[in-house]
């Protein structure tokens, strides 16, 4: 039982705890906070495995940027409970939910089992190479072996971004008919709230 093992055990438990609590919370802000907790614990796991860069990037991108946007939207809509989210009467009935949970549980067991069978567990705690997870190593993989997936992911995000802007943008004809002025439409939502 080394220090590494203790750190891993604690962060892994916290990560799972945060993930479970995220689902169990009725208050959306509390859910976001537990998700952040889970992400931070995952970052600790990465760091403990020697992938410092991945751990830091996980915090920068997910905890530092994406979750802030989540929180921003929740605050902007002032969601405070299940009623606000419209989840009080979900169309899916209890039996379907139960079956889905069982299916996911079986999948989880199978995955864990296959990992144990492949014998990868023993090697999981060890660092493969000295510069494993270093910035140079990650960058090399991203720009050589995984070049196309990397670029395609970028395009995908761009498409989503443009799509969101198109959907949020009001029709030009509406502007002509009066209501909101062109300036107000072009400005980010935050600008309007801040006034």
């Amino acid at each position: 039982m080394t220090g590494d093992m203790i750190i891993f055990a604690v962060s892994a438990v916290v990560a799972v705890f945060g993930a479970v609590m995220m689902i169990a919370q009725k208050n959306p802000v509390a859910s976001v906070m537990f998700l952040i907790l889970s992400l931070l614990a995952q970052a600790v796991c990465y760091v403990q495995l020697g992938a410092l860069f991945l751990g830091a990037v996980l915090v920068v991108v997910y905890a530092g940027a994406i979750m802030v946007l989540f929180l921003f939207v929740i605050m902007l809509l002032n969601l405070r409970g299940r009623e606000d989210l419209g989840l009080s009467s979900h169309p899916m009935n209890t039996i379907t939910k139960f079956l889905l949970v069982v299916l996911l549980g079986v999948e989880l067991v199978l995955i864990v089992k296959s990992v144990f069978m492949s014998g990868a567990v023993g090697g999981m705690m060890a660092k493969p190479t000295d510069d494993f997870g270093s910035v140079a190593q990650v960058a090399k993989l991203l720009f050589t072996k995984y070049m196309y997936p990397f670029q395609l992911t970028g395009v995908l995000l761009l498409v989503a971004l443009v799509g969101a802007v198109v959907m949020a943008r009001k029709d030009r004809s509406e502007i002509a008919h009066g209501a909101p002025s062109e300036e107000a439409v072009n400005e980010p939502t935050a600008g309007k709230v801040g006034r």
């Binding site: 860069f53 830091a56 990037v57 915090v59 920068v60 905890a63 530092g64 940027a65 802030v68």
Partner: peptide, 10 residues
């Protein structure tokens, strides 16, 4: 440097 950005972003 990335660590600093990680913690300040929080």
């Amino acid at each position: 440097v990335i660590y600093i950005f990680a913690v300040t972003s929080l």
